[in-house]
């Protein structure tokens, strides 16, 4: 059973004038972190809203955890953190988790031990009895994550989860997501923080103007075949001559040489030549571009 399945899903607003999503078909297996990327207005939030029944598709079908999206009972196993969520500011974090936990179908007995644990997880333990109108944006966001986890969901939809969170908090969110993934839960992530997405995601999909333009494994996208980053300790000046002799393309990037070889044999040949020159090789790393570079490249190609 897939966590998410969509078939030719489409959404138009304004009596069909504004296209938000067009014939979108996707399958997301369970137990992975899947990220949606795209520029503003690409249809990322619309897709999540369609899947959760917050808005209705113009045409097409979709299932979450094997059930039709019209069936709200499946929401019992789902957690959701909307972008720009608004919790009632007259409540404390404990009251919010209790109320939303109840709405999520969690019993009072379960909530009694879950709430302190979740508050500790998102570093709000000391703030549990403070009205949230006194919270900073990062604290509200962390509370939102705790709220999304209150029913121990199998499938988690997070819309910009690290928005407003400081670097330490972002790292903690990342660790939480990876831990959840390791527990077999599925995370559907929507984020502009490409460096975060790159670090946690197993697969990504890129949307543009409501259409799916790329989908696949993150590592495959950012790795460039037969391209390596070589760092040598001394005699760096001799390296260009070796590359020229072997007819290998190479250029300096951040103090290392990025070389493109035809195959692994040529790479080994290059290593032999470097060693012959008594140079110390510090590292040979398969070269990767950043997800941001890949994202911009894909968007550029699609124009």
């Amino acid at each position: 059973m897939n966590a998410v399945e969509t078939f030719q899903l489409a959404k138009y607003y304004g009596n069909g004038r504004i296209k938000a999503l067009e014939d979108f078909s996707l399958m997301v297996p369970q137990g992975m972190i899947f990220s949606l990327l795209g520029p503003n207005g690409a249809g990322k939030t619309t897709l999540i809203k369609l899947l959760l029944g917050i808005c209705f598709p113009t045409r097409g079908e979709a299932k979450i955890l094997g059930k039709d999206i019209q069936d709200y009972t499946v929401h019992k196993n789902i957690g959701y953190l909307p972008e720009n969520h608004r919790f009632p500011d007259f409540l404390t974090a404990q009251q919010i988790l209790h109320s939303y936990g109840k709405l999520g179908g969690v019993s009072s007995a379960e909530l009694r031990h879950k709430i302190p644990n979740l508050l500790a997880l998102v570093r709000l333990k000391e703030w549990g009895n403070v009205k949230i109108r006194k919270y900073s944006k990062g604290m509200l966001q962390r509370l939102g994550i705790a709220q999304a986890l209150i029913n121990a969901p199998d499938l988690l939809f997070l819309d910009e989860p690290t928005d407003g969170i400081d670097p330490v908090g972002r790292r903690e969110v990342r660790d939480i997501l990876l831990e959840l993934r390791n527990q077999g839960r599925t995370i559907f992530l929507n984020s502009h923080m490409l460096s975060e997405v790159e670090r946690v995601s197993d697969e990504i999909a890129i949307l543009k103007n409501g259409e799916l333009i790329e989908r696949g494994n993150v590592q495959q996208f950012i790795s460039i075949e037969h391209t390596y980053q070589i760092r040598v300790k001394d005699g760096r000046s001799a390296l260009p001559a070796i590359l020229k002799k072997l007819e290998i393309e190479g250029n300096v990037k951040n103090g290392s040489y990025v070389v493109s070889v035809t195959d692994e044999q040529q790479l080994n040949h290059l290593v032999d030549k470097i060693r012959e020159q008594k140079m110390t090789i510090q590292a040979i790393i398969p070269y990767k571009i950043s997800l941001e570079d890949f994202f911009i490249q894909v968007l550029g190609d699609s124009q």
Binding site: L52, Y72, K76, R86
Partner: peptide, 15 residues
């Protein structure tokens, strides 16, 4: 019906 509130409620298992 404010954005950020209603969507959170709809995401819960209730009609």
């Amino acid at each position: 019906m404010r954005q950020g509130n209603v969507d959170l409620l709809i995401s819960k298992p209730l009609g």
